[in-house]
Nucleic acid binder design. Structure first.
Lengths: 199, 199
DNA sequence: TTCTCTTGACAGAACGTTCAATCGAGAGTA
DNA sequence: TACTCTCGATTGAACGTTCTGTCAAGAGAA
């Protein structure tokens, strides 16, 4: 074993696992210490002033920042047949680690308004803002029919949510065996046919 | 004051409020007793064997059973232009009380698989199953183009979710001021244009 | 009296946090 | 080399508080 000396990171990792699995109240200083393989919970207080501060650091260090839509201007002219599946695949690409993060943040956001604010602004809010701008542009250049893009942006992201929720949190929802890719293609085709400029 | 004698119900009400606001771990027997205006927390143990049992009774007595789609067969022949907005409005009709229930159930479902199962089967699962049957039927009678109804059912319900989430849990999402009714009409029209048989 | 309901006091465990003591590696001195 | 001193890191024990759950005694109605 490589006797990792980065105690701080070791504690942060363990705290993340515990908070994600049991929530802020459910995870205890003792259980975090055990998960971090510390001999004593007291050591945590050498690196962090208290449980609350530890939690905030975990949150700050783990909240995923959406960079898929960072270089917005490059993407504005992509045809929707290409861009929407790309966004969808980025969504479904959440893996094990991000599922834990999402569980932690969503569960805690339901109880703490500041966490809710932080979550929305760092994730869904950005994607929605980008989508609104993108769809607006696509309407202007005539590739989509005129409509309220605040609504269609929500609608497109929303279409993917039940599939994602089934995969990550509620396996019962996924029992009918629909694959991510099938759902994505179906959703994109409904969305685009529904906003086609002609007809 | 009417000196309500239904102590059991009084405790259940208070427990619901506390669990919804603070979660299972965050709510304490003492805080529930205070919310129920009991002189002593001990009284709770006269009516319920322990905190866990109290929680399960709260869940059982409050989980909303979706009855909007109970009489399925009547609705199967309604045209989608009529049925889909009806389902949407039922969704958005969640009011204050149900928001609390939803917060309680979702937050707890993220940690307890049994609660997740219960939640999905009693709510979203039923609506999805009904929608699949309905859409299948509409495809058969030629009012919608052939497609995978597992996917379109998810998609339609999903389209409404960001709006609902903004209203109930994440006010930041709702800052652009889109109204429920506008979003519903927009979503239905995208969905139906996207699944129109002709094209 | 007897039964249902209610009470304050209490036990035992677990909680977050503090504390004094200790360890080991490195610097300074002889 | 050997001895001392320093200091960040670590430890086990203990603190005060809060938690769930128990108990014996009492109040009020039948």
């Amino acid at each position: 074993m490589t006797e990792e000396l980065d105690r701080r990171g070791q504690i942060l990792d363990a705290a993340f696992e515990e908070f994600a699995a049991k929530g802020f109240k459910g995870a205890t200083i003792k259980s975090i210490a055990q998960a971090a393989e510390l001999q004593s919970p007291a050591l945590i207080y050498w690196y962090f002033p208290n449980k609350e501060a530890l939690f905030r650091e975990v949150l700050g260090s783990r909240i995923p920042i959406v960079q898929a839509v960072a270089n917005s201007s490059d993407l504005l002219d992509l045809p929707p047949e290409e861009l929407l599946p790309r966004i969808g695949r980025a969504y479904f690409a959440f893996e094990q680690l991000d599922a834990q993060t999402l569980r932690l943040v969503v569960a805690e956001a339901l109880r703490r308004p500041e966490v809710a604010e932080m979550f929305v602004r760092s994730g869904p809010g950005r994607v929605l803002d980008f989508l609104k701008a993108y769809l607006e542009h696509q309407v202007e250049i005539g590739r989509l029919r005129p409509h309220d893009v605040r609504s269609s942006a929500r609608a497109f992201i929303g279409m993917l949510i039940p599939q994602l929720a089934g995969k990550m949190f509620f396996p019962t929802l996924a029992e009918d065996g629909l694959t991510d890719e099938d759902h994505l293609q179906n959703s994109v085709s409904i969305f685009l046919d529904g906003l086609r400029p002609d007809s």
